[in-house]
């Protein structure tokens, strides 16, 4: 409608200038008439040129850390690059902003300028309130020409993501006895980690092996990296199982509790096996975590899982799939808060 009204207004202006020219037969009004007639064509031609050459990229960066926590700002950048002499004062970029993990998304429009032979950068600071992966995708751009008659649209295919981890700025208040009752053997395992007698076999290094597993002496002798494949002396380990339920608020509580618990244990040099139920594979994901970095990676990987409604879904398969696990820490939600309980798998 805006464009039609502008066009009608412009035609009226041309008409009145035409009348003035007819009446006065003035060279000036003839010039004005030429300008008014030519301007839209020139403007549209420039706009086609611009559409062909415009490039729009979405970039992402986090503030300081590799990952962004809930409550922090995730910085996205929209770069509008134009190598032509055709500018636009109004280019509307259609963006899709989503958190794929919790399945929330919105479409927003942002109007930006297109500079002549230059780059315009928009900083888009998004504050994540829930964990997951925030993705900003540029879907299309609608470029208004200089006199504003013919907007041209170009499809875009650029996106960037930032992983949002739960907050870790507080200490977990947990029942130490509950945790410790499930971690005795694991602790023993950790303490005996350097004992060579616990090594089941020595093999060649495979990418992904931990640095601490490398047998440095042997590697030096053979001139090739060798690793020690450890085996736990016990069948009781600290197993932590969390539920990936669909309610985003409750899920945030569960993830925050899980993250905080694992992080606390890592800081105390305790190995944790993190379990969660994968609806896609219909099996458990079992991630061994010794370090904070492994915890972050585990969460980042977990964000690609599909959520489910049942808050006991994960626990319900444990006895069948992992009967060897005697007990485990179960993290779910009671409707408002996250709850950590020791579950006997017997």
């Amino acid at each position: 409608m805006e464009y039609i009204l502008r066009l009608i207004g412009y035609i009226i202006i041309i008409f009145f200038n035409g009348l003035m020219y007819f009446f006065l037969h003035s060279h000036f009004y003839f010039t004005v008439l030429c300008l008014l007639v030519l301007a839209p064509f020139c403007s549209v031609a420039l706009n086609f040129w611009l559409r062909k050459n415009i490039e729009i990229d979405i970039l992402a960066a986090s503030a300081g850390d590799d990952y962004v926590r809930t409550g922090q700002e995730a910085y996205f950048y929209i770069e509008v690059m134009n190598n032509t002499f055709a500018p636009s004062l109004d280019a509307k970029i259609r963006l899709k902003i989503s958190n794929d993990f919790i399945e929330r998304e919105t479409e927003e429009t942002i109007a930006v300028p297109v500079r002549i032979r230059g780059v315009y950068r928009v900083e888009l600071p998004l504050r994540a309130e829930l964990p997951g992966i925030i993705t900003v995708s540029a879907l299309s751009v609608r470029i208004k020409d200089l006199v504003g008659f013919v907007p041209l649209t170009k499809k875009l295919d650029s996106k960037a993501s930032v992983t949002i981890l739960p907050q870790d700025g507080f200490r977990l208040n947990y029942d130490r006895n509950v945790i410790e009752s499930g971690m005795l053997e694991s602790e023993e395992s950790t303490k005996r980690g350097n004992d060579f007698s616990d090594v089941q076999e020595i093999r060649e290094y495979i990418p992904g092996d931990k640095l601490m597993s490398i047998h440095w002496k042997l590697s030096a002798k053979r001139d090739i990296l060798m690793v020690k494949d450890r085996v736990s002396m016990s069948d009781r380990q600290l197993v932590l199982m969390l539920e990936l339920i669909k309610d985003p608020i409750r899920l945030d509580g569960i993830l925050t509790a899980a993250y905080t618990a694992v992080k606390t244990l890592c800081e105390e040099h305790t190995t944790v096996r993190l379990f969660y139920w994968s609806m896609g594979r219909y099996d458990y994901e079992d991630v061994r975590i010794d370090y904070i970095e492994e915890l972050k990676n585990a969460f980042a990987k977990m964000y690609y899982e599909k959520l489910y409604l049942n808050p006991e879904e994960g626990a319900s398969h444990m006895r069948e799939v992992h009967p060897e696990i005697k007990s485990y820490m179960h993290i779910t939600s009671d409707g408002s808060d996250a709850v950590i309980t020791l579950r006997d798998n017997g």
Partner: peptide, 29 residues
């Protein structure tokens, strides 16, 4: 719509294009 208020470089660029266009047409006429 999230909208920029104005960008002086783009304004100057657009005004410059308008000036060049008007100059060419007026001189040509």
């Amino acid at each position: 719509e999230l909208s920029y208020v104005y960008d002086v470089k783009t304004l100057a660029g657009a005004a410059g294009v308008a000036a060049v266009f008007v100059f060419i047409v007026v001189v040509a006429v």
